[in-house]
Measured scan of single mutants.
Amino acid sequence: TLFEALYDYEARTEDDLSFHKGEKFQILNSSEGDWWEVRSLTTGETGYIPSPYLA
């Protein structure tokens, strides 16, 4: 399933992933509550992002 970022986000820890509004992601793991592990389709990087920032 693909999701798109609604807002920009700046990583706060080394496990987080910074991203920009409009960036698209593949969800790798959504079992961690509000923090999902994703792969950016723009950069190929993986990390955790806050799920409320996605649509």
Rank of each mutant, 00 (worst) to 15 (best):
T46P: 00
A11R: 06
E45Y: 07
R39G: 03
F19H: 03
S30I: 12
E14G: 11
S31Y: 08
T1W: 14
K24D: 00
S18Y: 05
F25P: 13
A5H: 04
D16R: 13
L17T: 14
G44A: 01
S30D: 13
S30P: 06
G44K: 01
L2F: 14
D8N: 06
D16G: 15
T13Q: 13
F25Q: 01
H20E: 07
L17F: 13
E4V: 14
T42S: 11
R12K: 14
Y7E: 05
E10R: 06
I49Q: 00
S31D: 12
T46E: 06
V38I: 04
E14F: 07
D16Y: 13
A5T: 04
Y7V: 08
Q26C: 08
N29Q: 07
D8L: 04
T13F: 15
E23T: 05
A11H: 05
W36K: 00
R12C: 10
G47S: 15
I27Q: 00
F3S: 02
L28Y: 10
T43N: 04
N29K: 03
G22M: 14
Y48Q: 06
P50I: 03
S30Y: 10
F3R: 06
E10W: 10
D8K: 02
Y9I: 04
S18W: 05
G44M: 05
N29I: 14
A5V: 05
G33S: 11
Y9V: 02
E45H: 09
T43W: 05
T46R: 09
N29G: 09
D15E: 11
E32D: 13
Y7P: 00
D15H: 15
G22N: 01
E4H: 08
T46D: 06
T1A: 12
L41D: 09
G47E: 05
D8M: 02
Y7Q: 15
I49R: 02
S30G: 14
F3H: 05
A55D: 09
F3W: 15
L28S: 01
W36Q: 00
S18T: 08
T42L: 13
T43E: 01
D34L: 13
V38S: 00
W36F: 03
T46G: 01
T43G: 02
T13Y: 15
Q26Y: 12
E37K: 09
E14P: 13
L54F: 09
F19S: 02
H20C: 10
E14D: 12
S40D: 04
T46H: 09
H20R: 14
H20V: 14
W35E: 04
L54H: 07
E37Q: 10
G47C: 09
W35H: 05
A55K: 06
I27R: 04
L54S: 09
K21P: 03
L2I: 15
G33A: 12
L54A: 09
D34C: 12
T42E: 15
W36E: 01
E23W: 13
A11K: 09
T13L: 11
T1K: 11
E37I: 10
